[in-house]
Structure formats: structure tokens, C-alpha cells
Design a protein around this nucleic acid. Structure first.
Lengths: 246, 246
DNA sequence: CCCCGCGCTTGACGGGGATCAAGCGGAAAA
DNA sequence: TTTTCCGCTTGATCCCCGTCAAGCGCGGGG
């Protein structure tokens, strides 16, 4: 079966099977053959400039998004205007799953640097999931992992002290960057102290003070947004210092 | 097509279409016809005595569970032995979704009173989801709502003060009990102060003190595990008293 | 029936982190 | 290049809630 040349180009340009993120993104674990089935999962790509939002809380839900490059934060706004950062997302991670349950997005996704996402219309995700068992299985895993991730943050917020939380945050960031081929020990924070603080349930001054203390303790070197991890083992020790362990 | 009488009995006994929770549970929103398709979703039922666990963190994952009656808590244990209550579950709510992503459960589910669950082998859930679009759609919604719920708890833990958190907890409990036909204003807590405190990121003494203060303020009457809500509007006001609202 | 123990309440005190405040410095714009 | 502003750092102080401690009361078992 043939298709117009332009359509072929478009399909190939957005094809999962050609994407260098296929080891991280939705198709992870699928064979090359299976991968081709996904090649019409992505309808288009969309660029979002730093500071702009991919979607806002309250907007109708229609698609999931995979980060191709860039960096996002998700924020939740409570009835009384409080804002909480609920997550940070980088290449290969999936956005928008909060919207499935109520047909509207509950959180706002904002780019912290110029970014690009693959747009996957949700109806298409569900259609393909029904036809193609490996995709269904994998999609369920991705949803479940988001639940587990959120529960991990609950553990962090509910039972750890500020310095433990920040250490855990740095270790997690380092691990995710490593998985993407970046340096595990040196990186540039894309978010402000205020955003880190919101995510970790503390004030920006506390974040700043703790960065300084970690530096004094030779765990990290920090200069504004540049962070170098000097002693990852030390950070892990800080993060596990359950003093009031139940 | 006929089936042995015993099989018919078993099927009917565990049939979603006959269950008085069908308005709350997985089948919500399905028509009577559609419901019958689900009647072989549930393989068996399982009773769990107060204090016993349905599954433990680390155990292999094989099935999802729907609470038929009773009350559960889910707990997460971190590497260093800290324990955090990540949720409370009552009739009609789904358990075990944390296990899908890694083929093992990450949290432990413990009955806080004698309880019964419907066992839904996950392979069967996925098979039926592929054949039956309304189930697929609904199952995705349930997963997504769990994500949204968890993010709500993150907001609570990350940006609210202790009294706001406890008020939010009481309002939420009241609403869920109302949806199940129980009194909105009078109920018996199934969990201890310690468990409430763990869930809300505070110590049991703080929970106790706040209960006492709410009582002084004529918001509730509390006597051990018996709680009567006197002023739900007042509780909602406490919960929204964003003083440090960003 | 009484006793025992667990879970709850309440008080006193201290500390971790919030709040208020001032000044710095780097990045982006002119 | 200079200017400007936002984000970061650091200090001083305060207070919410954790910690430690003591005692109560209900429910279960002997």
C-alpha cells in the first residue's frame, strides 16, 4: 500500500522507530518489528518556548505528550490559590496522564527551557492499545510508575527532614540525567530555588541554605544553577539519616 | 451455551452486575448490558481479617483488588525503615495498581477492620480491556484518578499547615462516606492517631491536639475514634486558610 | 469482677524551618 | 559596554510542631 510522499515524510519524521529516545520513552522494550506499529501513534510535534505552557489546569484533555527534548515542571493550584510543583519532567518522560480521569487536565505543564514534545492523541493511544498488546501492557506500566513515583514523593514530604529531601532530590536528578547520557556529577538546574522548594515542601531560603551547607560539607559544589556532585555516597547517606525512624 | 450449575453459582456470586457497589467500583457508568461483560472479571473473593495484609511490598504482582467491604491502609517503607501511610481505602475502591509498573507491589495493604475484596487477575483485566472498549476507558480513568489523588496529597503535604491538613482529611473522609450512603457527619475512625499522622505528615500528638482544638472551636465532637462533624463549612474554611499563599 | 495494656490526651520544652529583611551578582536588555 | 532586575545568599528572629514525659480511660482477657 502506497501513501503520498509528503505523508511518508511526516510519518517518518515523527516515527518512534527512528527516535533516539526509543529506549526511554513509551516504546521501551519493544522489538524493532513491534516498534513500527507505533509509528502512527504520534500525530505531530510541538515546540514550547521557555516559560510557556503545554497545557493548563482545567483545560480539556485530548492527548498525551512525550518530551523529546527540554525540561518541564507540573504545577497544581489549590482552590485558595496555593501553588505546588508536583514534578519535573525531562526527555523521554510522559506528560498529561492526570487528564485521563476527568477529561480535563488538573495540573499545568510549563517549559523551563525551550522544549519539544510528541503529541499522541489519546484516542489513538487507546485504539492502538486494544490492537497491540505490548503497547497496552507498557502503557499500563507507565501509568502505574507515575503512581509509584508520586507515592515516593509522598514518603519524602511526609517523613523526611529538609536536608534529606534535598539530598534525595539531587540523587534522583543525577540518576535521571545519567540515564539520558548526561554527566552524573555535573549539571545545570533548570528550575529556580523557589520551584525546588515548592516541590520539596520548603521555602526557597531553606533550599539555598542547605545548598550552602552541602557545599561546606564537601558533598557538592554549587554556584547559582551550576551543580557539581562531589560525593554521591555522602548525599545518599544524608538522605537515609532517618533519625526519627518509626 | 450451558455451564455446570456450580460454575454458574460461582459466577453469579461474584458477578459485578449483581453487586451493590457497581455504582462506585470499576463498572461505574456502564449500562446493564455492558455490565454483564464484566461478570467474569472477578475470579474469587477474599476475606482479610483486621490487622492482616492483602499483600506486602516486594511481593510479585498478579491481580488488582476491589474492596467489597471493610477498610484498608496502604503503607510504603523506605530503604532506611521509615514507614509512611500513603492512603486509606474503602468499599468500591481499587487496590494494587502500584504493582503493575514493576511486576511487584511497592506498598503493603493492611486491613484496618475485617474486610473482603474481589480478586481480579490482572491478565484478565488486560484481556477484557482489549476486547471491551468501555472497560478499557474506565480502567484508564481509575489509574489516572489515582495519580490525581496522589498529587492532591502532595499539595497537602507540601503546602499546607497541620491544621489545614487535618481539616482536609476530615472533609475528604466525610465526602467518601457520604458517597457510600453512610452519615456525612458522624463516623468511627478505623485508623489510629499514629496512622492519621503518618498519612498527613505529622506526629500523633499533633493530631490529638488538633482534634481537641477543633472540638474547642465547635467544628467537631471527638471522643476516641468517634467523630461527629458539627460544622463542615468551618472545616472547609480552616482547610483553605492559605496564610502563606504564594 | 478487676487488671492490664494500648491508644489517646495533655503539658513543658526545644529546635528546625518559616519569616522578615538586606544586600549581592549574573544574565539579559538597552 | 552599562544598566537593570530577578534570583540567590545570608543573617536575625519567631513560632509551629516535634520531642519527651506523665497520666488517663477504654476494651479485652483472666
Amino acid at each position: 500500500m502506497t501513501e503520498p510522499a509528503l505523508a511518508t515524510l511526516t510519518r517518518l519524521r515523527t516515527a518512534c522507530s527512528q527516535c533516539n529516545l526509543r529506549e526511554l520513552c513509551l516504546p521501551v522494550g519493544l522489538s524493532a518489528d513491534e516498534l513500527e506499529t507505533l509509528d502512527n501513534l504520534v500525530s505531530t510535534r510541538r515546540k514550547i518556548r521557555r516559560g510557556d505552557s503545554l497545557f493548563y489546569g482545567g483545560e480539556p484533555f485530548s492527548a498525551l505528550y512525550a518530551v523529546r527534548y527540554g525540561f518541564f515542571k507540573s504545577t497544581l493550584t489549590s482552590g485558595d490559590g496555593r501553588e505546588q510543583v508536583t514534578g519535573f519532567y525531562m526527555a523521554g518522560e510522559l506528560l498529561g496522564m492526570d487528564g485521563i480521569g476527568g477529561d480535563r487536565h488538573t495540573c499545568t505543564l510549563t517549559a523551563l527551557e525551550d522544549s519539544e514534545v510528541c503529541v499522541m492523541p489519546f484516542a489513538r493511544v487507546e485504539d492502538l492499545s486494544r490492537e497491540f498488546e505490548p503497547l497496552q501492557r507498557h502503557f499500563h506500566k507507565v501509568l502505574s510508575r507515575e503512581i509509584v513515583r508520586d507515592q515516593g514523593v509522598m514518603l519524602l514530604l511526609g517523613s523526611m527532614r529538609a536536608e534529606e529531601r534535598l539530598a534525595a532530590f539531587l540523587v534522583n536528578l543525577s540518576q535521571r540525567l545519567t540515564a539520558r547520557g548526561f554527566s552524573a556529577s555535573e549539571f545545570v538546574l533548570r528550575m529556580t530555588r523557589d520551584e525546588i522548594g515548592s516541590y520539596l515542601g520548603m521555602k526557597l531560603e531553606t533550599v539555598s541554605r542547605l545548598f550552602s551547607r552541602f557545599q561546606e560539607d564537601h558533598l557538592i559544589e554549587v554556584h547559582q544553577k551550576h551543580v557539581r556532585i562531589l560525593d554521591i555516597g555522602g548525599l545518599k547517606r544524608v538522605m537515609a539519616q532517618a533519625q526519627g525512624a518509626a
